[in-house]
Amino acid sequence: MTVAAARPLLEVQGLVKHFPIYEGLMFSRRVGAVQAVDDVSFSIQAGETLGLVGESGCGKSTTGRLILRLIPPTAGSIRYDGVDLQALEPEAMRLKRRDLQIIFQDPYGSLNPRMRVEDIITEPLVIFGEKPGPALTKRARDLLETVGLASFHAKRYPHEFSGGQRQRIGIARALASHPKFIVCDEAVSALDVSIQAQVVNLLQDLQDEFKLTYLFIAHDLGVVKHISDRVAVMYLGKIVEVADKRTLYRQPLHPYTQALLSAIPVPKPRARRARMVLKGDVPSPINPPTGCRFHTRCPYAKEVCREIEPPRIAIATGHEVACHLVKAG
């Protein structure tokens, strides 16, 4: 893929989200902030899939929601197709939402239990003024068939479906308004492995068919490897390494990425390999470590890591790492 070819479809610059913590009931004061996302930048080319991986609580989902402006960022800019989404008036943003969609993690919580499947999946269309009628019903049935369900499912309620089927309904809803960009927020994490494979394949087929661009958020590196073109690794609100899939999985440079990759189970019981096991827990994002945020758990940490935050530097074309121990060239 030629990187310099065109303007990226999505460009995130210096994205920051701090959730303030208040104390006291009547006269509350701000006592701190959860630094969920801190200075995150990346870009996604049209038609590409960027995998975003990291441990629980590292800010992956928050990043996804910030991009869709479901929560307001503390700082930073999000440019979609050259338009700064933050600068849009609420109404203009609402109209932009046709192009940007999201698939949620929880197939049980993401469908309104009081609505029929056909009303759920055509809601994005009804919102933008399409009138209920035979055309809309037909569209609902087509969408259901596109995601591998049957058209006679349209009249049913969400509780009549299994988790995997519900996730397909969620995908059908995300496709309804012909979006160009979809955030898959742990879209397969809640599913059984066999169903995961089906849904991941479905997402890939849909990408080819409708020329979609994905931000694929997950904590399962195997799934990310399968679907992504490029992968960004997040740790405690920061992106520590970005590279195209092949490079990242073959030659991870950041110690955290190395640790993550060595944790992927290998389906060979007798295989021996060097496991890199991290000690301790993820530090609290309320009071993140100074310098490199990973230094408290990094087996190679040096003095400089404790004091100075490493900048993200390009090691090779498209391969960026934020680590003092990795030198350019």
């Binding site: 046709r98 949620f104 993690q105 993401s110 309104n112 919102i127 933008f128 809803r173």
Partner: peptide, 13 residues
Amino acid sequence: MEFVQAALASGAT
């Protein structure tokens, strides 16, 4: 709940 977020993401008022 997530379906409220989904509606918001779909442009619902």
